[in-house]
Computed example of a mutant assay.
Amino acid sequence: MMKEWIPIPGSSKDKILKVALEEFGTKGYKGVNITALATKANMTTGAIYHHFGSKANLYEVIKNEMEQRIVDRMEGVISVFEQPDQGLESALITALKFAVEINICKLLSDEGTNLTPDKITKYLSGFDINNHMPISIVLISSWRSILYSISENIITLEQGIALIKWIFNKSE
């Protein structure tokens, strides 16, 4: 089944989504001005409201799609390990590299609107290691902190990867 919001390439909805991904990806929810976004997309704010209803709805469409792409990558990596929790380190590193590659670190670390449950948190919460200790709480907050730190140029991707590896070495 095709998702309702998938736009026709080159349509106004497509242009809005592309610009919105870039803007929310680098500035987060609070940093995006809907008028500036419309101008950058060569659209009116009315076109954005027509297609998405609000800035929050547009943000949720973008964030949900990016979170699903991250979860899909994590699932793919984890599937090659005998025990799913063994693949968490590799999955988080793969997801981090992807987030940096498409410039969505700020988006994924952003609190945003909290209109819908976070797909990545939901997915990672299913993995508890070390005798069922809820380590996912630490992993989720650490991963988001690493994303935020990369988005703010506090650390590099390589430092983020090293931090994930350090966390897993400490958790054994």
Rank of each mutant, 00 (worst) to 15 (best):
M1T: 12
K3T: 09
K3L: 14
K3I: 07
E4R: 04
K13P: 06
D14H: 13
I16Y: 06
L21A: 14
E22W: 00
Y29V: 00
I34E: 07
A36E: 12
L37M: 08
L37P: 00
A38V: 15
A38L: 10
A38P: 01
K40H: 10
A41C: 08
T44D: 13
T44I: 09
G46F: 08
I48R: 00
Y49R: 11
H51F: 12
G53Y: 10
S54N: 07
N57Y: 09
N57E: 15
L58G: 02
L58K: 01
Y59Q: 03
I62E: 01
K63S: 06
K63I: 10
K63L: 09
K63W: 03
M66Y: 00
E67Y: 01
E67F: 02
Q68S: 14
Q68E: 12
V71L: 09
R73F: 05
I78P: 01
S79Q: 14
S79P: 01
V80G: 07
F81R: 02
F81C: 07
F81G: 04
Q83Y: 05
Q83C: 07
D85H: 05
G87S: 08
E89F: 00
S90G: 08
A91P: 01
A91M: 06
L92A: 15
I93F: 06
I93S: 11
T94A: 15
T94G: 05
T94V: 12
T94E: 15
L96E: 13
L96R: 05
L96F: 02
K97M: 11
K97S: 15
F98P: 00
F98S: 15
V100P: 03
V100Q: 09
E101N: 14
N103R: 15
I104G: 06
L108A: 07
D110V: 03
D110I: 04
G112Y: 08
G112C: 07
T113A: 02
T113C: 06
T116R: 08
T116Y: 06
K119R: 15
I120R: 03
T121I: 04
K122F: 13
K122G: 13
K122R: 14
Y123T: 12
Y123A: 06
L124I: 15
L124T: 10
F127D: 01
D128M: 06
N130H: 06
N131K: 00
P134C: 12
P134S: 07
P134H: 02
P134K: 04
I135W: 04
L139S: 08
S142K: 13
S142I: 05
S142A: 14
R144Y: 07
R144F: 00
R144W: 01
I150E: 07
E152A: 08
N153Y: 10
N153W: 11
I154C: 04
I154T: 11
T156G: 00
L157C: 12
Q159N: 09
G160T: 05
A162E: 14
A162R: 07
L163P: 00
E172K: 13
